[in-house]
Design a protein around this nucleic acid. Structure first.
Lengths: 243, 243
DNA sequence: CGAGTCCTTGACGAGGCTCAAGCACGGTGG
DNA sequence: CCACCGTGCTTGAGCCTCGTCAAGGACTCG
């Protein structure tokens, strides 16, 4: 089944996005106000303060939300992957800078009709609540990383998170090694982790030197022993979030 | 009008908590499953991993959510003030350590009936979504603080946030100076900001020495010039979130 | 080949952490 | 009434991690 933009039934994120719980009649109403937009890697999607007349789901690719300080320091505060939701119903102006980290396709809904639909039907609101609570949880995990971890632990944590997501997609046949493509540049990783890109580079080199990771080119990461990497994150291993 | 625990109509957080939008019949159903619990400053409310058979609103006082690493480092990831919501519908086990920072009173709802009520009526879910989105926004502001700010900027930011909240309560007659009680110990502030308590103490002393703040005892803070304090936060002043 | 982008590595310095000592204040008990 | 203790806070000295500045390598594209 290939993806037909006219038919939500064939959409790759149909069962995980904000529309996951919608009945057919709700989907039809959404389809009436939806449109697709694509961005190339590195392109801005919207700047903080701009008027935002749509909300959107990420169909493919990766987008980042960042906040800037007046002197130019910047911190990534959200990383949007396929099926994640962009925008806030009821908010007219964007609160963050949004950038396409990789090539990106959004499924956009005009904001006003979306809000109206949300107030009339329960499924969108419920799903959005669930997704927002999940995002709050990951924001809190992220806060622990930013506030208390060393540079080495930060890098290990990020790699572990990406590897875990890769595994959860379940696409990979039972390979011993976890392999994935880094969707972020060194600079974006630094932005994510509250480090400089030099420190990121040094720590990745160190992990490679010690055999905890291998690199195929700059972006392909191979993790020969996931547990060994986890041990470098500093996390309390049995303290996993249960939901 | 004094607060009568039997009557939600007299509740001090009636118009801001998760029940803010409820109609009278919904309130009655909530009242049937609610009970109050109080904690003294410093007491634990619940530990991460414990079963959580209630959710709650903070009626008065302050509670913190924190995460711990295996070696004991700890990071506060949430600060709950009156009207804030504790717990996650659908989640059986607590994901964070919750501690009463000051004397604390919770309005608790048994979790199962609360979830049922939520699925049957729209108002609770809508309000909870709104509150969760707000919390996500403050979590993201916090991430910028943790990831990119200097110790001095962190302290200034925290004081500015507390002062702003104080001002927004509007209780204070048009005083030139903003005055408020610090609800946190130095250690809790350090936990909040990803610093050590020594650094917190040094930076507070520095701000005092430079006249940006004054202290009455250890906990009473006077801010003679709010704008001057804001200038120390490093924030882009016109980049305020608009909602 | 040159230019641009992304990454790596080195040298150095500063900001914040660690360790340690001591102060202020309030409560308790002799 | 005062000695004693516990808690919370302050201050100092020294060290280490990570940021800054700088140079140069790997790769792609025109």
């Amino acid at each position: 089944m290939t993806f037909d933009p006219k038919d939500c039934g064939t959409c790759p994120i149909r069962h995980r996005a904000v529309c996951a719980r919608c009945e057919n009649d709700e989907l039809e109403q959404l389809e009436a106000v939806k449109f697709y937009r694509s961005f190339e890697a590195g392109q801005p999607v919207i700047w903080s303060g701009d008027t935002m007349d749509f909300v959107a789901s990420v169909v493919s690719g990766v987008a980042s939300l960042s906040q800037a300080m007046e002197d130019g320091r910047t911190q990534m505060v959200g990383l949007l992957l396929p099926s994640d939701f962009l925008g806030r119903p009821g908010r007219e102006f964007a609160a963050y800078d949004v950038v396409a980290v990789s090539n990106l396709t959004l499924c956009c809904f005009r904001r006003k009709p979306f809000e109206k639909l949300m107030s009339q039907t329960p499924h969108i609101g419920h799903r959005l609540l669930e997704m927002t609570l999940d995002e709050l949880d990951s924001a809190r995990e992220w806060m622990l990383i930013l506030g208390r971890k060393t540079a080495r632990e930060k890098i290990a944590s990020l790699l572990a998170i990406l590897a875990r997501r890769e595994a959860s997609l379940g696409l990979r046949p039972q390979a011993k090694d976890t392999v994935f493509e880094l969707p972020l540049t060194r600079e974006a990783m630094a932005d994510y982790l509250g480090l400089t890109l030099e420190t990121v580079s040094r720590q990745i080199s160190a992990l490679k030197r010690e055999g905890l990771i291998q690199l195929e080119g700059k972006r392909q990461v191979i993790i020969p022993d996931y547990a060994a990497l986890l041990a470098q994150t500093g996390d309390d291993c049995d303290g996993a979030i249960m939901s």
